[in-house]
Design a protein around this nucleic acid. Structure first.
Lengths: 232, 232
DNA sequence: TAGATTGTTAATCGATTAACAATC
DNA sequence: TAGATTGTTAATCGATTAACAATC
């Protein structure tokens, strides 16, 4: 392995920011920008330059003293660090609107996730087409995980079924779970669970809106990147 | 106002946990459980009892010394605190798979979010039905936000369009944004942005899987709530 | 070169946790 | 009552930030 000699574990908050550096670096690459400094990255993403430098020190990108980070190097290092180059096999459990949306989401494939199955306990949904896939019954789930070396399971079922689906995935040997259900999922420590609970996120947003300033005082808003680039 | 005399701002991490207390309390209520202690809640959600008690002190739920918190009181207090009882008007921009899934997601409605419009810049999608709604052109967006007093905008468009859609929503008077696109959204401080970036979440999960134990040593796993209730 | 920017250390800040008096 | 659990203070822990020497 050529990964730099780094210590055991990186905090989740850092990894979350690394995904932001990646997507922003990809935008810059698309614009033909060659170099970006920690202060530029920080300004765009609402972080201090020190945080950016410290985060990027976890990844093996050598910044250069007087210029910053080379955009293509940064992209490649982050893609590699996050495992996009190796790739993952994933399945989706729950062929409702959300499950189908995920299975069909091109960005997932473009970021190294191959959706190799969609499952549903509802017999009426089994056999339906979802893009290039066919919805399969839950009875085939365990064998699929084993045979196709599935790494990641996406839980897109109603709250009442979510924990038992998780249990089934776990005992079938899944290595990680994306939880799109409403409830908290319990899993052993060697099966990481990442929450994508969108209803919960909306609740957080509602709270934030209620505690932020009242509607309307946006008159002095300077537009984001897209708007700004027009007058620059 | 009858909200208890609490200080200015609650950290995002606390609000995020409050949504977990809420959904778990709702599960308990459904099971007919009357009381729950901070240590029970903590155990189920992977938190210490001290964290739970401190979090719930932000909300105006009086726990009772020898019993814990009354489940129905807890539910109601959290629902009220998070603004579910008042409710929000939301629109979705982007009538792709993810946008449609959100617009059709029953749990959102059940948690106080009324989706009152779906918009898309693609003329071929305008006029399509999404549940009880019809996809409308972007030209009608600003007037809708104003006329229907829309609070929240959901950004479900490709990365390249996300910031300009955000800018349009902001200058039209939106009060908060749920960002489902890949990129970081820049907004003024009085328009909170909550990220629901699922691809980024999957990247975080991939990293977590790679740095966790290898596949297979799940033999000693004690099942989550659902499984456990069978042998209890 | 002079100026700018990294990498990293030390200081600060905030969040989590332990502990315990209050109390039902 | 005795035991259990809250609410809260003080201590700990970890993450962010400021600062600066190294350096291209």
């Amino acid at each position: 392995m050529t990964t730099s000699g780094k210590d055991n574990s990186i905090p989740g908050a850092v990894v979350s920011r690394l995904t932001k550096y990646l997507t922003h670096a990809q935008v810059l690459r698309g614009e033909g920008v060659q170099w970006v400094s920690s202060s530029e990255l920080g300004e765009e993403l609402g972080l201090t330059s020190a945080t950016v430098r410290k985060d990027l020190a976890h990844v093996s990108v050598g910044g250069i003293t007087n210029r910053g980070y080379e955009v293509t190097v940064l992209c490649d290092a982050l893609l590699s660090f996050l495992g996009v180059d190796v790739g993952w096999n994933a399945i989706v459990v729950g062929a409702g609107n959300l499950g189908k949306a995920l299975a069909l989401h091109g960005e997932l494939f473009r970021h190294g996730f191959a959706i190799c199955g969609v499952f549903d306990s509802d017999g009426r949904k089994v056999g339906m087409r979802v893009g290039g896939l066919t919805v399969r019954p839950m009875s085939e789930l365990a064998a699929t995980i084993h045979d196709e070396r599935v790494d990641i399971g996406v839980i897109a079922v109603p709250a009442a079924a979510a924990q038992s689906v998780a249990d089934l995935l776990i005992i079938s040997g899944i290595r990680g779970l994306l939880n799109l259900s409403l409830i908290h999922i319990v899993a052993p420590s060697n099966v990481p669970v990442v929450d994508g609970r969108l209803v919960a996120r909306m609740l957080e947003l509602g709270h934030a809106v209620r505690t932020s300033a009242a509607r309307g005082d946006t008159s002095d808003y300077r537009l984001g990147r897209v708007g700004r680039s027009e007058d620059a």
